[in-house]
């Protein structure tokens, strides 16, 4: 018997990752690993926190780009603005982390709403250029407005009070890690529900044919603005988390490279899977760290090479590979069970 992933066989439809009687086990795996990391990571815990923040940020791109097909290269604008907003609130108003997180999220969402209204009537390359332009403008503004942002020196003097008034953000990043994991989990559950809701299905339709969605009565423009705002809010949360766990915000959080890196993470992991963002970002952060240790000057070659291989040979990224393994194992198991 040859083992090949044949998507057309109806029995295999029930064997999709996360479906069926033991589907829940697939959900336990990534979150279990994330939780276990807390206990074994030791000095790497801050790296783990950074990975969680990138997972959340990548997830926001999956919503906008993966599901709704909004070609955005400027998602870092929301990440950075969320970071600065959370940082400024902690300096000037209150050191409370939850309020800071909500504030950073709200400001990023507001920016998403306003810029979305301005640019989402366009599509394709035009839209891509506009997202780049807006991100560049915001980056330039942050660099110029030194009194507000600290310019090149970054935002100094952030103070974050203990979480819930009990757990201080310690040097080892233990509170920070669990805090980031909890926030990521909440957003992930929300995203999971959203993409399976009628609203989420309509985004799927809009990506495939905006014209058809209009003809069945969907206000396409408003749906795009809604998901863009939502993705901006999510990116803002990720930025706020980064600001709070580092107690510092630099201009690099607005850098276009942040958007680009997250796009790479998303493609590595696989788009439109949600867990693709999870796996891709975690994988990237770990590989980058290992490769940089091995060769601090040439690690980008490894990342670049991996990306080329993924895109050329492994459709669906790491999640596609997981699917394939799962199918193969299931077929073997079914094959032996029938005998």
């Amino acid at each position: 018997m040859t083992v090949r992933p044949d998507m057309s066989a109806p029995t295999l439809a029930q064997l999709r990752l996360g479906a069926g009687r033991f589907g829940w086990a697939w959900h336990v795996l990534p979150w279990g690993v994330a939780l276990a990391t807390y206990f074994v990571a030791g000095a790497y815990l801050t790296l783990g926190t950074a990975a969680l923040e990138m997972i959340l940020f990548t997830l926001s791109i999956d919503l906008a780009l993966g599901y709704a097909g909004i070609v955005t290269f400027g998602q870092a604008a929301f990440f950075g603005v969320g970071a600065y907003a959370a940082g400024l609130l902690s300096i000037h108003v209150t050191p409370d982390p939850i309020l800071g997180l909500l504030f950073g999220t709200a400001i990023a969402a507001l920016l998403g709403l306003v810029t979305g209204v301005l640019i989402l009537h366009t599509e394709g390359v035009t839209l891509m250029m506009l997202t780049l332009a807006i991100a560049s403008m915001i980056g330039a503004f942050a660099a110029q407005a030194g009194d507000l942002t600290g310019g090149d020196n970054g935002l100094q003097g952030m103070q974050i009070s203990p979480l819930f008034g009990v757990f201080p953000f310690d040097l080892w990043g233990q509170t920070g890690y669990l805090y980031a994991l909890g926030v990521l989990f909440l957003w992930f559950v929300a995203a999971w529900r959203i993409v399976r809701s009628p609203f989420g299905r309509s985004l799927d339709g809009i990506r495939q044919s905006p014209r058809r969605m209009r003809a069945i009565g969907t206000p396409v423009w408003w749906r795009l603005i809604a998901v863009y705002t939502l993705a901006a809010a999510m990116a803002g949360t990720a930025g706020s988390l980064k600001a709070q766990t580092n107690q510092f915000v630099g201009l690099d959080s607005l850098d276009l490279l942040v958007s680009g890196t997250a796009l790479v993470m998303l493609i590595l992991g696989g788009t439109r899977r949600l867990y693709g963002a999870f796996v891709g970002a975690a994988f990237y952060v770990v590989v980058q760290d290992l490769a940089a240790e091995f060769d601090p000057f040439r690690w980008m070659f490894l990342i670049g090479g991996l990306l080329v291989v993924m895109v050329l040979f492994l459709e669906g990224g790491l999640m596609g590979v997981a699917d394939w393994l799962h199918h193969a194992a299931a077929r073997l198991w079914l094959g032996t069970a029938r005998k």
Partner: peptide, 19 residues
């Protein structure tokens, strides 16, 4: 429409539900 424009990533039922 002439091209039918079914959403390939949605199931038959989801194609109906979305409209």
């Amino acid at each position: 429409p002439q091209e039918r424009e079914i959403f390939p990533s949605l199931s038959v039922e989801e194609n109906l539900l979305v409209a």
